[in-house]
Design a protein around this nucleic acid. Structure first.
Lengths: 143, 143
DNA sequence: TTAGATGCAAATAGTTTGCATTTGT
DNA sequence: ACAAATGCAAACTATTTGCATCTAA
């Protein structure tokens, strides 16, 4: 059995879902990915870890994790396969080179005041946010 | 001919592309959508305006517009058809209810300083940004 | 006039579904 | 024990491609 004690695995269990081999393998791949991974890559890495796990179960796990807000699909690149982003503590920030696709993460985002103001004004209970900057990185600018 | 004088149509022309009937129709649908629209809806509305326009041309137009940064694909909902967002001045902000899918837009984002700092530190030339807040809206909280 | 764009239909790629079987609790 | 989850393969859906034709400049 794989990493059945991780906080995310706990959240799965707490929500009343079984900690199956397929789900734990998908979870492990997501966590080892560093936080950004496409569905195609998840499929490939899962199948490399255990070729007997079916594609359908991978997609079902991704859907389940999304519904539990463990991950979130986003469109980072132009490709048509969604990129999943781990949501470790409710938010995520990156800066993306639209030319080479490089993704750099950063921590501070200074959005807390704005978040509070919006929540108050609109009556939302905010659970997280995603901030993406787009541009051309230093290396690509030189070309 | 449709709206061939709009600023976006001008940008198409300036980039050396022809202002064809198919492209102008897709552009019109995007502009009349209010800023958020899925590819499926674009297909449907374009075909309602002119059933002789082929699906492939619609996708080709969406790709072209994306490459010109007139629009940007994003993953607002769980659906597998991408949502395109008009990029009027390089950035776009929304707050999304993860329960009912409602999307509210807002203007101010207070990210200019952060953007400048990141650009300087990382050597990026920034072209835009996307800010998404997630949460549960007032109506869904009452349920 | 002619490079670029189109519409069509077939091909492809990604994801989902139905169902008999297996597994976590 | 048994509801939940799985793997498989077939079905679906969205998008892309090849190509002969058309059209905006």
């Amino acid at each position: 059995m794989i990493d059945a004690g991780s906080p995310r695995a706990q959240r799965l269990r707490d929500a009343g879902h079984k900690l199956t081999h397929a789900r734990l393998t998908v979870l492990r791949v997501l966590e080892e990915s560093g936080g950004h991974i496409t569905s195609a890559e998840v499929l490939e890495r899962v199948s490399r870890l255990d070729a007997t796990i079916g594609r359908a179960s991978v997609f079902r796990a991704l859907d389940l994790f999304t519904s539990l807000s463990l991950i979130r699909p986003t469109y980072i690149d132009t490709s048509q396969t969604p990129t999943y982003v781990l949501m470790p503590d409710g938010h995520h920030h990156h800066i993306i080179c639209t030319q080479c696709g490089q993704v750099i993460e950063f921590e501070q985002c200074g959005l807390n005041e704005l978040a509070e103001e919006l929540a108050r004004k609109l009556g939302f209970q905010l659970t997280g946010h995603l901030v993406e900057f787009y541009g051309v990185c230093a290396a690509c600018r030189r070309k």
